[in-house]
Amino acid sequence: MDQLDHISIQYDGEPYTVPSGRTILTALEEIGLRFVRGIGCRGGVCGACTVFYRVDGEPELHAGLMCQDPVIDGMDIMPLPAFPQKKARYDLELPEGDTADYRVVALYPEVNRCIMCSECVRVCPMGLDVMGYVGMIKRGDLRHAAEASFTCIQCQACALRCPAQISQPNAALAARRFYGRHQAPQAEHLTKSVERTQDEKFQRNMERLRRVDMDALRILYQRQEREPGDAPPGTWLPEDRSML
């Protein structure tokens, strides 16, 4: 096993000596702390374990995730288990004459108050250009706002620091949903495949296959052709088309 040095940190106002070389979460757990709140996926995608911290003697305030960020000697950590966010409630239907981009700004008008301090960009644990996507929402460019915010884990670190009181992650979520519903190209090929499942003849074929015994199914399984990995979309067709 690896030999580890021990370092001193503060968590939620209390001092602890923890092993180094660990994430904040595992270091605190190893000395016996048990978390119930402020902990989630333990994989850096849910934003439940967001913390703010300062390292002794340094001016910067950082945001981080306990399950991802390493412990640093002299670190003083504040957990952020819950944050009062602004959450608009809406359905995706657009009233007559309204547009998707306008609707998102109407739901989150605070985006217009952005003072471009870029504090949100500085603290984002995911390294996102938060201020950039807020600007895109403001300008009605939902497509780029959707792309720029796509890996947001909604930890709310940006929202906590925003002097304009924007709930950026939620505004971005609305931007992505309205973009997906009203502006992104729709998957036309899905219509046909949905209709096929409603076709009675096709449903009877399915039922017949479902009744096939396992030995016969094994043969069908082994006989199936495999679509080549590099076949361009929608072009390749199997020799045996009896099941299409």
Binding site: L220, Q224, G234, L244
Partner: peptide, 13 residues
């Protein structure tokens, strides 16, 4: 959902 595919093939898989 693709042209070369169907729920029957999905079922077998």
């Amino acid at each position: 959902d693709q042209e070369c595919d169907s729920p029957l093939h999905h079922y077998i898989d």
